[in-house]
Design a protein around this nucleic acid. Structure first.
Lengths: 184, 184
DNA sequence: ACCTGAACACCGTTCAAGT
DNA sequence: ACCTGAACACCGTTCAAGT
């Protein structure tokens, strides 16, 4: 199916280096300049642009890595029907707060976009979350009308809380989790 | 107390014009350039900078106007102890969604800041919200441990949901309001 | 094929000259 | 005192020349 040719080995290595450098630099500051990322990666700016159409695309690629990591966690720990969604939200909070600048960069990139095509990792993540939701609902620990969209929404808010540092994200998670309990 | 001299009439008019133009333009697009705002206001860029240290300060001033408007609404409609906080959150959602670009600009400005000194309108707004919370708690329609900080946090999230368009803000408000009900 | 980095475009901000 | 807007600084992006 794939019409792409196999890229040259050095090209692939360069792409990886750029991602690595971007990840490291953005973990500390969210307004790192692109030429600086290129320098840290040991390549010219042009090489960055060869791999990613623009700055936003580079950040999206980093986001995809994060999504994949989170999906892996969710598959292992959130499908048992024992309030997996709760554990999921807390984990996301931890990840985001451990890498504020990246979260910020990701959110900015998303905010700027119009209607972007979602990446594979994100799609995969949604599948896992849907299963976590179903498991919790079957166990009666989550409101019956809770959807993937709801969780997606709450994660976005969590990211916003972490990014702005406008309050304690754990407190936010607690409040929100109350709202997700089954109707009594 | 005020050591400031009364500004010249034309200076004051210019300041008002800049705010007006900025408000109008930012209501439609959130990335309007500063020179364009100056042109729409019929002044030179330098005049904008005379009134506001930088772009962020201009946006903050617009935010203050919004806060004042919202505070007025809250004073009138949210102090009766009949779920005023609920009405407050819904109103904020309406206001924000009616002016996405401005909300976005405000949020971006806040996100960028470190620890900014809050304006008068915001301080005033917090006072009113505190009273709304107290009234609802006295009436037993709001959890006893709900604080101004909680509401502030939720408003930030509401703004984030509206801005990114990542979901239905009314749905978010509903979920969150469940979490604010008194412990059963 | 892919890489480099000087050059370009764009926009926020400053400041010399004007009223 | 305040205003104007050309000039400057900065950074994202392009593209001609090189390997």
């Amino acid at each position: 199916m794939s019409t792409e040719r196999k890229p040259r080995a050095d090209a692939e290595r360069n792409r990886a280096r750029v991602l690595e450098a971007a990840r490291a630099l953005l973990a500390e500051q969210d307004d790192v300049q692109l030429p600086e990322i290129a320098r840290a990666a040991g390549v010219g700016v042009g090489t960055v642009y060869r791999n990613f159409p623009d700055r936003r695309a580079l950040v999206e690629a980093l986001a995809e890595q994060r999504f994949a990591e989170i999906a892996e966690y969710a598959r292992k720990r959130c499908l048992d029907g024992k309030s997996g969604v709760k554990r999921y939200l807390r984990h996301v909070g931890e990840v985001l707060s451990g890498d504020r600048a990246l979260s910020s960069a990701i959110e900015t990139a998303r905010g700027t976009a119009g209607s972007e095509p979602r990446g594979d990792a994100l799609a995969e993540l949604e599948t896992v979350v849907a299963r976590a939701i179903a498991a919790d609902q079957a166990a009666g620990v989550l409101r019956a009308d809770c959807t993937v969209g709801d969780v997606y929404l709450l994660v976005g808010c969590l990211s916003s809380v972490v990014r702005t540092g406008s309050g304690d994200w754990r407190r936010f998670a607690e409040l929100v989790l109350e709202g997700l309990l089954p109707r009594g």
